[in-house]
Design a binder for these strands. Structure first.
Lengths: 119, 119
DNA sequence: CAGTATCCAAATTGATACTG
DNA sequence: CAGTATCAATTTGGATACTG
């Protein structure tokens, strides 16, 4: 029984649900978590796995997730450059909690599409 | 180990994660789920609980959630009109799965804010 | 009370070209 | 390879006024 605390515009950062979930509720974050599930990956590996994300958007999403402490970014100053991204304990914790939701989405997907068609 | 299926633009609806989660990943949906957690509520009750949402946005979000089968809308043709919204089994299922995530967000909130400050 | 109707601002995402 | 820099389009959300 979670209390939906404070929801005034000025206080959005004081509502944990808004402050935490809004930042991983964009179009790509959870997908990136899934891609990194089984270990660190390079920038272009992630990009290819996602298929249609642009470089600009991937870069800024990764930076945001790094700032929030969900993943680390390690640069190897070689030529050509190499950068790897890896989930932190916090990132793995959140992904672990999201996993049942993701699995439920996969299960319920067909049913939901059917409902939409009706309306 | 969830497979991040198909991520081409045209096929976004074939990726359950995108197709299901994107639609409850907006600014208000999960919050509305929380408000309706302990039973049906009227339009303005929900509005007051959320504090700063506008009528237009609340209406359209509720309509979307209804179309997706997460809640029902029941109209009482009285004067003044009365409309109540209530979570469906599907809505309760999703909220149940999101609950651990929400609780984790509440727990981790302070820590995350601290990390942000560093960066 | 529970909406619609307009209009508008801001945030998000995308396309494309360029670089150390 | 892993980005930046611009520019443009789209989407989302908000302000305000009006109505059965």
């Amino acid at each position: 029984m979670v209390k939906v605390t404070v929801l005034d515009k000025k206080d959005a950062q004081n509502c944990p649900i808004r402050d935490v979930l809004d930042r991983v509720g964009d179009k790509w974050s959870i997908l990136i978590f899934c891609v990194l599930e089984d270990g660190a990956k390079r920038f272009n590996e992630i990009k290819r796995a996602l298929g249609d994300i642009t470089q600009r958007v991937l870069t800024s999403t990764l930076r945001k997730l790094e700032t929030e402490g969900y993943l680390t970014r390690e640069v190897f100053p070689t030529s050509p450059p190499k950068v790897i991204y890896e989930l932190t304990a916090r990132g793995r914790a959140l992904l672990g909690l999201m996993m049942p939701v993701i699995e439920w989405a996969e299960m319920t997907h067909a049913e939901i599409k059917a409902d939409r068609a009706q309306a």
